[in-house]
Write a protein that binds this DNA or RNA. Structure first.
Lengths: 122, 122
DNA sequence: GCAGGACATTGACACTTATCGATGTCCGAA
DNA sequence: TTCGGACATCGATAAGTGTCAATGTCCTGC
């Protein structure tokens, strides 16, 4: 059974301590780029909710190394899963991670809900 | 009656177009800094939900021009309101703006709710 | 084993951003 | 009117980031 790690307190519900702020900022930084937002939403919009890198360079309009770089940033932030299948690498969105970030931005403290933050602290 | 401006489509609900992605990324960039997250939460945690700059430099541990800079970034993103009272300037959080950003990060399309995105597009 | 394709990594460059000291502007008090 | 305090702006600097061409690694098919 996976450990349930509580998320950091919502931004507007009290004073964030320094490490919570660092962690949340680091996740937000991964999201705060138009290319990465589009990659994330493009991948999630695929019929099977995944895409390999070769299908992403053209919609992104960027070179393969650049797309690879952005995917790596999203992957390191826990927002994308990586799966290697043969010569290809498939990326899949992790909605729970995005949900955890959303929870950290909640205006009011969220209702208690088990497993809301699966995937680690934000 | 104020115009209700719909927010951009949620990231995971379909493919974001370029201008939506730019707008959302720009709002997220304003949030994606530990100093700014702490300023925002500190201000919101005050008894009267506001604070003047002179009360923020010490908790932030930064120089007055630097704090002023961060407040300006949050203000330009619509996350803080600015009010000048005599020689002092008071900043107040704008929860609706944060809520609009959260909505844009929703995993599923949100239920229709009037005035959910008051304050402009994200 | 060899050739070619898919993806990651490296190195370099331009651009942005966080930070501070110095200075400017505006306000209230004397 | 003058002085001092609160805040913003400016200029400079160091650190971070997005981008690409070149190169490296790994897999598949021949």
């Amino acid at each position: 059974m996976p450990k349930v790690v509580p998320c950091c307190p919502p931004v507007l519900s009290g004073s964030l301590d320094e490490s919570d702020a660092e962690a949340l900022a680091s996740s937000l930084k991964a999201l705060a780029d138009p290319v990465r937002l589009r990659l994330l939403s493009f991948i999630a919009a695929q019929p099977d909710r995944e895409a390999c890198v070769c299908h992403l360079t053209q919609p992104a309009g960027l070179s393969q190394p650049t797309v690879s770089h952005h995917l790596q940033v999203l992957h390191r932030a826990g927002l994308l899963e990586r799966e290697k299948r043969g010569a290809w690498v498939y990326y899949r969105a992790v909605p729970a991670r995005l949900e955890a970030i959303r929870a950290a931005l909640a205006t009011r403290p969220p209702r208690k809900r088990a497993r809301a933050a699966v995937g680690g602290r934000v």
